[in-house]
């Protein structure tokens, strides 16, 4: 297995940064496509596990990207991927933030926001389905995914409870 170079990773994640409409979650299938399907740098199950660790840990969910980098090239990989993912969009936000007052009420700004929404949602739902698939389609896991989707959709409880509940079920061996 030939790993990626650090500069290659940086450029790849710079491009991801500008494609992350509506946030990092929308990028999951594209990252999977490149990292697992195209290059075979990790298995689909590893990918799903790293996502789970990022969700369970405190902090913004963009840190999933850091874990991908960590898996591919250790701590330097984590730093390079995180920087690549954050820098271009942060520069854009910095620039636009200064002009924001001028755009705030323009029809174009509202059109961009409302036009991107259905794309973001389609991508996020795609991310969810892909992660279910990557975790493995054994019956008990599908039940857990469905339950967690339903419970967190319906209730306002901190979603960490559902992750903790799942960990417990896995830990006592109910899934084997």
């Amino acid at each position: 297995m030939n790993g990626p170079s650090l500069s290659g990773l940086f450029l790849r994640f710079c491009l991801f940064s500008l494609m992350a409409v509506g946030g990092a979650t929308a990028l999951v299938p594209e990252m999977h496509r490149q990292v697992v399907d195209l290059h075979g740098w990790m298995s689909s199950a590893d990918f799903a596990t790293l996502f789970a660790i990022a969700q369970a840990a405190p902090g913004p969910n963009v840190l999933f990207v850091s874990l991908i980098g960590w898996k591919l090239a250790g701590i330097p990989g984590a730093l390079v991927c995180t920087l690549g993912m954050c820098l271009p969009s942060a520069l854009l936000a910095f620039t636009v933030g200064r002009l924001w007052d001028r755009f705030r009420h323009s029809t174009w700004r509202m059109a961009i926001e409302r036009g991107l929404a259905p794309i973001t949602i389609g991508l996020v739902l795609g991310s969810g389905c892909l992660l279910v698939q990557a975790t493995g389609t054994r019956g008990p896991l599908l039940v857990i995914a469905a339950l967690s989707a339903l419970l967190s959709f319906r209730s306002k409880l901190n979603p960490l409870w559902w992750l903790a509940g799942a960990a417990l079920l896995g830990g006592v061996g109910l899934l084997s």
């Binding site: 979650t25 999951v28 199950a45 799903a48 596990t49 996502f51 789970a52 969700q55 369970a56 996020v124 991310s127 969810g128 992660l131 279910v132 990557a134 975790t135 493995g136 896991l141 599908l142 857990i144 995914a145 469905a146 339950l147 967690s148 989707a149 339903l150 967190s152 979603p159 559902w162 992750l163 509940g165 799942a166 960990a167 079920l169 896995g170 830990g171 899934l175």
Partner: peptide, 11 residues
């Protein structure tokens, strides 16, 4: 694996 399935559900 169980946490990953639940995390997928959250998404």
């Amino acid at each position: 694996a169980a946490v990953a399935a639940a995390a997928a559900g959250l998404v």
